[in-house]
């Protein structure tokens, strides 16, 4: 019975690319749920190990952005071996904080980080996983949202599509009856940032810094108007959100130039 059950468990692997490993740590913070998760899945890879004995996976979770030529090779390889590929955390989803370097010439970045050894470390602009391979699902956030990760994992194990939210953080604040951060006179990007984090920052008295990226179909003019109304500059807003979403905001490059 148990043997049969074991074989039914989906083979799950976690792969780490360029990131701070905050998302990994976050998973270990699950504590009580951690054992439950291990019951649920057959964990075949955790961390780098990509040797020849590595097999095929049902679900591959990818953390970190793609920033070196060897990363590109690895991500293609993983995609070939897995049925479902999930990008975990903002680095994997949009390039994340790493992508801030994309605003500077690559040579200058390499020089500053590695100095004379820069030729030993080939580098490229930090890109999201989906720039190279098909991504089936995304868990956004920096660090990624744990409730959302659990939802995605449970859904995939059950064999259904996860429900990925595509509306503003405001919804989650209002459902929790949080005091509105804007009402307190603080800066907040909640009205244009994609929900799914359960409004964790506003719930703890902080403003939303937009780490999960923009809602789709955002009303750009409305967003600019909103920031002005509250006395915040568009530049400030872009700067804060760009910290996690440089690549996504490149698409919105004309923000504020109207």
């Amino acid at each position: 019975m148990s043997a049969r059950k074991k074989s039914q468990k989906p083979k799950v692997a976690f792969f780490d690319f360029t990131g701070c490993e905050g998302c990994q740590l976050n998973k270990l913070n699950l504590e009580n749920d951690l054992l439950g998760i291990l019951e649920l899945i057959d964990l075949v890879e955790f961390r780098e190990a990509m040797d020849d004995k590595a097999e095929e996976y049902d679900i591959a979770f990818i953390e970190g952005s793609i920033t070196t030529p060897s990363c590109v090779e690895r991500i293609y390889d993983i995609r070939r071996r897995t049925k479902i590929l999930v990008a975990l955390g903002q680095c994997a989803v949009s390039g994340g904080i790493n992508a801030m370097k994309n605003n500077y010439p690559l040579a200058q970045v390499q020089e500053e980080v590695y100095g004379k050894d820069k030729y030993l470390f080939p580098s490229m602009p930090a890109m999201p996983v989906r720039a190279f391979v098909q991504v089936d699902y995304e868990v956004r956030g920096c660090p990624m949202s744990m409730p959302e990760f659990l939802h995605v994992l449970k859904s995939l194990v059950l064999g259904r599509k996860p429900e990925i939210k595509d509306y503003a953080v405001c919804v989650e604040c209002k459902l929790k009856e949080n005091e509105c951060v804007l009402e307190k006179g603080m800066f907040c990007l909640g009205p244009i940032t994609r929900a799914g984090c359960d409004a964790i920052c506003p719930s703890n008295g902080q403003y939303c810094t937009g780490c999960r990226g923009l809602v789709s179909n955002m009303n750009k003019n409305g967003a600019i108007e909103m920031l002005k109304q509250h006395g915040f500059s568009v530049e400030e807003a872009i700067k804060r959100m760009a910290m996690f979403n440089t690549n996504e905001l490149v698409k919105e490059a004309n923000w504020g130039n109207r």
Binding site: Y167, C170, V171, N219, M226
Partner: peptide, 14 residues
């Protein structure tokens, strides 16, 4: 109105 609206849902939710 829609030019200014962000579609955040706050109005309905309160």
């Amino acid at each position: 109105v829609a030019e200014r609206c962000l579609g955040c849902g706050t109005c309905n939710l309160v």
